[in-house]
Amino acid sequence: MALKATIYKADINIANMDDHIYADYQLTLALHPSETIERLMVRILAYARYADEGLEFTKDLFETDEPALWQKDLTGLLEKWIEVGCPSEDKVKKASARCKQVAIVTYGSQANDWWQKNTKIKTLSNVEVWQLTPETTEALEQLCERTMQLQLNIMDGEWTLLSDKGQVDIQWQKLQ
């Protein structure tokens, strides 16, 4: 008998004072049995970085041709393709050819090696790559609950995620 996904809900209020964007999002995420809490929280953070009403979580762990998040236009054409983790170079190249904007949010102990090995990604002009520090993702895990109320404040390039369980200063490094 296959294990079922666990459903998590996150209400996230974003106050981006740098770009004057203020919005609330109600997210429902399925945590696949093979997925970690760390990855779940990074998916939420990736959503927050590219937040838009049209942005959707996909079945990326079930469907290997899909990213963690995507956004389509009204005709169904892909506009944004957002990967979480260390995707293959081929997958990123295909996404780059299909979409206006491709983003990768990488994290974990393999991220530096992945970035050094995948040199062709650096030649793709519509791909941006962000890396989260291990301290950030470790702290993010501590905020996780089945039902989360999150507040993200962005000011002067500094990101702070708050919940009833505490706060995390998000440390991003832009690789590309």
Rank of each mutant, 00 (worst) to 15 (best):
L161W: 13
R49D: 11
M155S: 15
A48I: 13
L150W: 03
Y22A: 05
K80H: 13
A10I: 05
I7W: 06
N16K: 09
V129T: 01
I12P: 03
T6W: 04
L31V: 01
L69G: 00
E66Q: 13
K94T: 10
D169M: 14
D73C: 15
D52L: 05
G54H: 11
D169N: 15
F57V: 09
S96K: 00
D164F: 08
L175W: 14
I12T: 02
Y47N: 02
D164R: 15
V42Q: 06
I12A: 00
A30K: 12
G76Q: 13
T28D: 03
R146P: 02
E138V: 07
V168L: 00
K122Q: 12
G157P: 14
I14H: 07
R146N: 08
A2Y: 06
T136W: 15
I14R: 06
L77G: 02
L175K: 14
L152R: 08
W70K: 05
N13L: 12
A30Q: 08
K4M: 06
R43H: 05
Y8T: 00
E141F: 12
E83R: 09
V168F: 03
K80Q: 02
K165M: 04
R39I: 01
W81R: 15
K80G: 11
I7D: 03
N112A: 11
R146K: 15
E38T: 13
L161V: 10
D24L: 13
D65H: 10
E141G: 07
Q176E: 05
T28E: 03
Q173D: 09
K100S: 01
M17Y: 15
M155D: 14
N112M: 05
H20S: 05
E128Y: 09
D73P: 12
Q171L: 10
T36Y: 04
F57T: 11
L31E: 03
N118W: 10
E63T: 08
D24P: 02
R39E: 00
D18R: 12
Q149G: 07
L3K: 11
L29K: 07
I154W: 15
K59Q: 01
E128S: 15
I170L: 13
E128R: 03
A10G: 05
D113T: 14
T160C: 14
L150D: 01
C99E: 02
K100M: 07
L55S: 09
Q26H: 08
D19A: 10
A10E: 02
I14F: 04
K4A: 10
C144L: 07
V42R: 12
T106C: 02
T28W: 03
A5G: 12
A2H: 07
F57K: 09
A111V: 07
L55V: 13
N126V: 05
L77C: 01
L61R: 07
